[in-house]
Design a protein around this nucleic acid. Structure first.
Length: 269
DNA sequence: GTGGGATGGGCAA
DNA sequence: TGCCCCTCCCACA
């Protein structure tokens, strides 16, 4: 049940374990009927873009995986563990295995379908090649609340409900503020913050946003151990609790079918 | 034991 | 805008 940080981490780990090798592939619960097409083929690489994964076996043989709310991977060293639960996809070599359960989508894309998917995704803070300027321009034209725009995968890819709430808190911007009233400087600051927090979350395997902005995460250290479990988020799922900064009661509200959390004092409309 | 909610997104209407 | 997909966890009984 990940945001972009976890998806990119899966891509790195699965590529390290499986890419360049001939794989055994099956689908114990039958939820991926094309598994037999891949069995015995070589996985070339694993791509991550936003919350989407592509396991590339060939130009027109790309396994698209989107985990949605419930999907999750498990991985380990051979031998295979006993079959358990609704096991949609299983890939293994002589040394490593990966299991997929509960995904929203697991299906084969050809190169055209994969390209069309990437074309409709916005700037991904976890990709070196990301250009956020089109996203800034789009947001500056819209009356829609910034809290909705940040979650729109056509604008930014990989940001989910936790990062939405926390990035807006750290920028001291209310989720309800219209996009066109967010300054370019504020948008650049949010992007820069995302480009710092998301790689850190990738490495930590959890999203920690309560580190001060002026104390950047450095690779190779374990900074999350200095933060208690109660303090890893400023506002996400902290409704009815006091703001860690000003003490005001954190609020929550439905926004576009999802729950948004914010501090009514720190974050101004 | 049980019921509600959850890190998502596509689709119909 | 609301429903579906169909899983896991937690608070509460």
């Amino acid at each position: 049940m990940p945001e972009g940080n976890e998806i990119h981490r899966f891509a790195e780990r699965h590529a390290a374990a499986l890419a360049g090798k001939r794989l055994h592939v099956d689908s114990p619960n039958g939820g991926f009927p094309d598994a037999s097409l891949l069995n015995g083929r070589t996985l070339k690489l694993v791509e991550a873009y936003g919350k989407h994964l592509g396991y590339v076996f060939g130009k027109d043989l790309i396994v698209h995986v989107h985990l949605g709310m419930y999907g999750d991977f498990w991985e380990g060293k051979m031998p295979l563990p006993p079959e358990k639960g609704a096991l949609r996809l299983r890939m293994w070599t002589r040394t490593d295995w990966v299991e997929l359960r509960g995904a929203t989508d697991c299906s084969i894309f050809d190169s055209e379908k994969w390209a069309a998917l990437l074309a409709r995704l916005g700037a991904d803070p976890l990709r070196e090649d990301a250009d956020p300027e089109p996203a800034f321009a789009t947001i500056r034209k819209r009356k829609t609340a910034i809290g909705l725009l940040l979650m729109d995968q056509r604008i930014f890819a990989g940001i989910g409900n936790i990062f939405r709430a926390e990035l807006l808190y750290r920028a001291r911007i209310s989720p309800m503020r219209p996009g066109q009233e967010v300054s370019l400087a504020e948008l650049r600051s949010i992007w820069k913050d995302a480009c710092k927090l998301m790689p850190a979350a990738m490495e930590d395997r959890r999203i920690v946003t309560t580190r001060p902005k002026d104390r950047p995460h450095s690779r190779g250290t374990v900074p999350s151990e200095t933060v208690s479990d109660e303090e890893v988020h400023y506002v996400y799922r902290r409704h009815n609790k006091p703001c860690l900064v000003c003490g005001a009661t954190i609020k929550r509200q439905e926004m576009g079918g999802r729950t948004v959390y914010w501090c009514p004092e720190c974050q101004k409309a």
